[in-house]
């Protein structure tokens, strides 16, 4: 399903850069110019520029922009503190908060005509998920040493041949479910919006889906972050 209009792709095409017509192109430049890449960069630039503009000079009495960020970051930090504890929050707050902001903004810009959600491509969500998945194993090994492997061995030594494959499969299932849930929800929203826009755009048919889209975007970002926090907490604690 091609998007009706993607303005960054149009600008790049006018500049003479190759735009792939499938989901991903063949050459390196084509792959770099794929819509989900360009919109990923757009989201990154957006977050960096807005952060710089509103937080350029910090003040004791916060203005409008600083107030917004203080509420957002403060709320997120409280949430992480409740779930992960002080030590992990201090270590991992920048990473998880970046993911939260990036996923939320990336989901929401797909609702504006002419934009596309970078998270509606499996490449983006799988990349985020692989980072989370590898990080939660690193946290486990750093917190517990080789005793972390006891997480995968089940409660009793006799049950090891049965429990080891089950635990491994359910651990790999995290990789799949975390990435495909975000990808599937956002891709469904984008495709539905595209089809409704094409069928009955003149009668505002996409509007109800857009309202649902706002909800889905925020909920999916929250679920991703919450599950990240849960995985980190689980791998940090001792095996019983």
């Amino acid at each position: 399903m091609e998007h009706p209009i993607l303005f960054i792709s149009i600008i790049l095409e006018k500049l003479g850069l190759p735009i792939p017509h499938g989901p991903v192109g063949n050459g390196l430049v084509e792959q770099l110019c794929a819509p989900y890449m360009t919109y990923t960069w757009f989201t990154m630039i957006f977050l960096a520029v807005v952060g710089k503009m509103t937080l350029g000079n910090l003040e004791m009495v916060p203005g409008k922009g600083q107030n917004f960020w203080e509420i957002l970051i403060g709320g997120m930090e409280n949430f992480f503190l409740e779930n992960m504890g002080r030590e992990l929050t201090d270590k991992l707050f920048p990473m998880i908060a970046t993911f939260a902001l990036y996923i939320a903004v990336g989901n929401l810009i797909g609702l504006i005509p002419g934009f596309m959600s970078p998270t509606s491509s499996i490449n983006t969500t799988l990349a985020l998920t692989i980072i989370v998945w590898i990080t939660h194993h690193i946290i486990g090994f750093r917190a517990n040493g080789f005793a972390y492997l006891k997480h995968f061995l089940g409660p009793m030594p006799i049950l090891i041949p049965l429990m080891l494959p089950i635990e491994l499969i359910s651990n790999f299932a995290r990789l799949l479910s975390l990435s495909i849930r975000l990808f599937g929800n956002i891709m469904a929203k984008e495709t539905l919006l595209g089809i409704l826009f094409m069928l009955a755009g003149a009668f505002f048919a996409p509007l109800p889906i857009m309202i649902l889209g706002v909800l889905v975007s925020l909920v999916q970002a929250m679920v991703f972050v919450l599950l990240t926090v849960v995985y980190f907490t689980q791998s940090n604690e001792h095996a019983h």
Partner: peptide, 25 residues
């Protein structure tokens, strides 16, 4: 609400993903 969504919202996907990975392996 967020806690409930986070805890129960991924039941379906996790269940299916586990079966797919097991059978794929």
């Amino acid at each position: 609400m967020i806690h409930l969504l986070g805890n129960y919202g991924h039941i379906g996907f996790t269940f299916v993903a586990a079966i797919f990975i097991g059978m794929g392996g």
